[in-house]
Amino acid sequence: MSTTEIKFGGFGGQGVILAGMIIGRAASIYDKNKFATLTQSFGPEARGSACSAQVIISNEKILFPYVTRPEILMLMSQEACNRFLPEAVDDATVIIENDLVRPRHLKPGMKVYGIPATRLAEELGRKMILNIVMVGFFTAMTGLVNREAVREAVQASVPHGTEEMNLKAFDRGYEYGIQLA
């Protein structure tokens, strides 16, 4: 059985939940033989500065629905990093927005990959799509979900009329990751 626990963190308005949705949708609908469960925090507590989505991806039916020890973290704000990094497993893969996050208290086994997603998004004309750049980067660095599956999920998840721009953002992030690797 191969099950991966992932945590997406950032501040409200960055599209953190959407990023998680895209990965979950890609795995469970567009990839082959994968299951995904997404949970998120709700209520006034969830509207604060650190907002998160949790995704479990497995090649078997997922039973326990919550992420307890994330193995992959995608972090888009310092506060999310401070709050969620301590929950991670010792050898977690940590994917960060370079200009927004300075990882602290990293454990020796952790692998950190950074991308200046905000700048790349600005170069593409919309700062708003930094989450999709991050999703592209995430896809390249983790290899967890098939690239084409994530592209399809991006297309299915973003507002009508913005698909092209978002796919560009995805590709930009993905390519950045491939070059890094």
Binding site: G24, A36, T39
Partner: peptide
């Protein structure tokens, strides 16, 4: 709440 708010295929 857990079933209501969890997202799956």
């Amino acid at each position: 709440e857990c079933v209501g708010h969890m997202t799956e295929k």
